Amino acid sequence: MAAFGSIFMPRMALATFDNNQWGESKIVPSDSIPMHPGAHVLHYSSTCFEGLKAFRHADGSVHVFRMDQNIKRFSQSSRLLALPDVNEEQVAQMIKDIVAEFASDVPAPPGSMYIRPTHIGTEAIIGKAAAPSLTSMMYVLLSPVGDYFSGGAHALRILLDENGQRCAPHMGMIKSGGNYASALGPIMKAKEDVQADQILFCPNGDVQETGAANFLLIDGDEIITKALDSSFLHGVTRSSILTIAKDLGMTVSERDLTVSELLERAAKPGVEAVLSGTAAVLTSVGTFIHNDKEFKVGSGEPGPIAEKLRKTLNDIQWGNAQDTHNWLTKIV
């Protein structure tokens, strides 16, 4: 089976920014883009992206989940990176156009069509280390994906790191490739040294996020997660799960969480810890690794509350439950 996100549709939507304006978007082959080797993005990392999904319902219709929120974050990331402001209506139309073209290729549940809008600085100039690119390119890739847990869901081993940080604090709320690159070295070292699946970055004991997902602790009917600030990514899946939790009568506490409190709560029976993200929705954490010691989270296995929250969200995405929050945009 192909790796998640490694298969792409043969065409994509593309638009370019030049002379202070966006050109009309078009559908082009997705196997290459024209770009000078001196392009700003290749030297100074002027790039951001989004990840969202389209889902096929039982009646054959295709719907994109929370497109408006992903576009708002895409626009915010572009602005904070000093890339040209995106036209949010144009981005929405590009997503709709390319998903409509490949609507018949959207997999049935538990699969989906992963959508990757991307914005890069294209000005060919290597003298702008401290200045933005005046030109840019925006494109929308599609990748049909299967069930993230095709091999069966398992609880992850997570290293708690109180010294490092996923990325520079002022970059945290930007969805940029450099943030993932900065976390890659520590994650690879954690995998080799203690067989960890991921790192939960907790600078100075402040529980924040992993290299690629938000973190939530579930203690009975309460979900605890760090309150939004500029130091970490404002996940759309995180927001959706918290809204669903409130719908189910749970208490949502967005506040600071220390490593000490985390480990104390994790030892209690029935406690669950999860990572949230577009790809896996919710992934259970079974073990924390801290100061060369291992701490089991609850039973150490995926828990029932995480499963209920994930199923509730999936049911909305796949059209098996009412979309009471108007999260779905029908494409065809």
Rank of each mutant, 00 (worst) to 15 (best):
D247H: 15
S260M: 04
M250P: 06
R238T: 05
K293H: 14
G270N: 09
E254C: 04
T278I: 08
S276G: 08
A280E: 10
G286R: 07
S284W: 13
L257V: 06
T287Y: 04
T243Y: 02
L257F: 00
R265D: 03
A273Q: 02
A279R: 03
R238S: 10
K268V: 08
K246A: 15
S240G: 05
R238M: 11
K268A: 12
V285P: 03
A279H: 12
L275V: 02
S284D: 09
S284A: 15
G277S: 14
K268M: 05
R265Q: 12
L282T: 06
E264L: 00
L262A: 06
E254S: 12
S276H: 01
L257K: 03
S239E: 14
L263R: 00
H290Y: 15
L248Q: 12
T258H: 04
T287D: 08
E254M: 08
G270K: 06
A280K: 07
D247T: 13
L282H: 07
I289F: 10
L242T: 15
V271K: 10
A279T: 11
V281N: 06
L248R: 09
D256C: 13
V281S: 07
V259D: 10
I289S: 06
I241A: 06
R265W: 07
I241Y: 04
G277M: 09
A273M: 08
I244F: 07
S260R: 03
S284E: 10
E264V: 00
S240T: 15
S284I: 03
A279L: 14
V252F: 01
S253N: 14
G286H: 08
L275G: 01
I241K: 06
T243W: 03
L275A: 02
S260D: 15
K246M: 00
A267H: 10
N291A: 15
G270I: 13
E254A: 13
V271R: 02
R255V: 02
D256M: 09
D292V: 01
A267S: 14
T243R: 08
V274I: 13
S260P: 06
K268H: 11
V274Q: 14
A267E: 14
E261R: 05
F288K: 02
A266M: 02
E272A: 07
